[in-house]
Design a protein around this nucleic acid. Structure first.
Lengths: 392, 392
DNA sequence: ACACCTAAGTAAACTGTTTCAACAGGTTGC
DNA sequence: GCAACCTGTTGAAACAGTTTACTTAGGTGT
């Protein structure tokens, strides 16, 4: 690459003292080494340390106990007496000793790390939807003593079986899969629950996978009820990615609710908006070109709704007087736009946090399947009004 | 918390075979164990494995070589003969053996993990600015065989010295610090370059820290030159966070350029927009209230510029005919707004990627300080025009 | 007075890899 | 004919912890 620095693991030789420990111990009886020997003498907390990093062995030597005892002190094992515990703990504090997590994980059962798997979209990280989920995940993980690793499910990643490899090579204890859909066949490798994985904000019927989702059906129902109540009958749907189960839920709810109101939706009322602003604008255009009498547009996410608003603004159509627009997500941004967007609030932060917690439980032996559904609610703002021609 | 599952590390007892290896070897000469013994017999690739995870020892035993040899095969050590290399490699493939990364890192020098440190903002992950940086970081890290860990510099995190601890406990090889400012005193712990850290898209004069930044001064110069060329003289600045060096660079450039054009900026022309849409809107309002004759607003980031646009729209002011607006960042969103935002393009993806690469070099022994400045350029779109009263 | 029990602590095995020092066995130099 | 070198391989130490099985000392029960 652009650097000529060696990046191989077999780099720079590290000096290995040949069986030095046992000899020095033999030279003077065990524990006769004076305490002032090392960092103990410094009174101040060892910020930056004296260079050498202390190991459990060092602590044990200075405390005149075995490494097993130090380990047990660290893990609050009740077999250790109050006095020894205090003695060792004090030394730990004084030396600024911190257990090496690699050694702990190697020896123990857990890595205390989770992977967040993002779709291979170029701008997945710059997306407010994923950001909300990740925010919830990171907060909860931190509280539970876990670290979070970022992964992207690129074609190569899956082809190389890396989704399995991060477990086999003991990188992580579990995976939180965001933004996945029916085409992500690699997910079926987790259907047997051999390695813990939780699908976040989507679910699958074809594979038996753990999941934590928002209640998209109920959200869509609230939107449709509300629009129908406002007198809308010719309602367009800007949906997306039919390979996503929750998107299909929205579409099905839309159809069912229209049917329930005695309306047969025209084929032209539904258009794919590809989850983007541009797509949403284009979809709005298509729908209104095919049927200019449509009085409301229901978008499958806020981004597409904003795109639609944008298109309508360009066409000088008055939202909400001429046409109503509803989104889905309730991103921060949605409230801060003209007109402020009526939308379905998804508890994405909570979904992320809960998924994280359940995943950790799973990794620690929880047997029952995880299948949680969190409630959504409608945020009525300024982009919706009575259908034109209906008196309030 | 909400779960009663044990989360301690000292969980479930794992059976330990007592010195079984040496005994079984004694029972029959070394290497006389039949090959069909374990997974070797299966012809198909071991997707999912046979349950037991294979270690290097297992591979060595079946290949009738030492673990040292297997290790050298894995690391392509030239001291291993072609024949042995092939024999061992074939077995590795057949068994689906994957080296344990914890053991590798424990034994070796590097963890092959970097931390991305984000500010403690509730919505840091949902931010397009950070998203771009992280996207660049993750891509480059992946290409260089590194994993990326997410951290948030919350007050507790720093108070507990966790920014040091992630090194001491061998979680990571280095830190990429995003969104930091002069108040982040914890950064000075890295001034001595004891542990590798690179400040991303900001820099410090008070602490000697590695950094990779966009050229904010040059970006601001381009904006000011352009606005002055269009005839603007009464230019408002919506800036933010003066504890950020690059923000001060923008402010200083703004003042210098105005002075160069013989303009003394009124005190009321500069207002803090707090990097948010809401703040940008409020700042625009303040500036225009104090001096309604201002003909252009220059915002320190796109979010604030969008907020300003929004405010101007609400006030029915015509952008760009009545007033011009310029942003800074060039987020995807900026191009997709009415009117499309004229802004300074920051190569955030590239900054992230380069910072990542330099950090890895640093972790691997690079001695020279990292201080890179990437060029920016003006994206002229629809939100700017000749100043009112100036003929084109 | 002896077996039995408990509490507190320890030695050693174990996790899975890297790397060094040593070592056979074969060439080559002189 | 033997010292010197080279090649390929190995045993074991090292990394830094956890956990098990054992030991020792002291206290009870009968």
């Amino acid at each position: 690459m652009t650097s000529d620095i060696e990046l191989t693991r077999s780099a720079g030789r590290r000096p290995r003292r040949a069986a030095a420990r046992s000899h020095s111990a033999a030279a003077s009886g065990p524990g006769t080494i004076p305490l002032a020997d090392s960092a103990v003498a410094t009174a101040a907390p060892p910020v930056g340390g004296d260079g050498k990093k202390v190991s459990m062995r060092e602590v044990a030597r200075l405390a005149k106990v075995s490494v097993a005892t130090v380990s047990m002190v660290l893990n609050d094992n009740p077999r250790i007496s109050r006095a020894t515990h205090m003695k060792v703990q004090r030394l730990i504090d004084r030396l600024g000793y911190r257990p090496n997590r690699l050694a702990q994980s190697l020896s123990g059962r857990y890595t205390q790390v989770l992977a967040v798997m993002l779709p291979a979209l170029r701008h997945a990280f710059a997306d407010a939807y994923f950001g909300e989920l990740i925010s919830g995940i990171c907060d909860r993980a931190g509280k539970m003593g876990y670290k979070v690793m970022l992964e992207q499910a690129k074609p190569d990643f899956v082809k190389d079986r890396q989704h399995i490899e991060i477990f086999e090579r003991r990188y992580v204890d579990g995976i939180l899969a965001l933004g996945c859909n029916d085409r992500h066949a690699w997910l079926k490798d987790f259907a047997d629950a051999k390695y813990p994985l939780i699908v976040v904000d989507n679910y699958f019927n074809q594979w038996n996978l753990d999941h934590v989702v928002c209640d998209y059906r109920s959200g869509a129902e609230q939107v449709m009820n509300y629009l129908l109540q406002l007198g809308h009958r010719r309602i367009g749907l800007i949906n997306a990615a039919q390979e996503i189960r929750t998107s299909r839920d929205v579409l099905e709810t839309y159809r069912a609710k229209l049917a329930g109101a005695g309306v047969t939706p025209a084929a032209g009322w539904v258009e794919d908006g590809k989850f983007t602003e541009e797509g949403g604008a284009r979809a709005a255009e298509m729908i209104l070109e095919r049927d200019p009498s449509v009085t409301a547009l229901f978008a499958g996410n806020d981004k597409m709704a904003l795109g639609a608003l944008h298109y309508l603004d360009r066409r000088n159509m008055d939202v909400p007087r001429q046409i109503s627009v509803v989104g889905f997500d309730d991103l921060r941004h949605a409230a801060f736009v003209t007109p402020a967007l009526t939308t379905v609030h998804l508890p994405l932060y909570e979904v992320g946090a809960l998924a994280c917690e359940r995943l950790i439980e799973r990794a620690h032996g929880r047997a029952e399947k995880v299948a949680e559904k969190l409630p959504t609610h409608l945020m009525v703002r300024e982009s919706t009004a009575m259908a034109a021609g209906v008196s309030g």
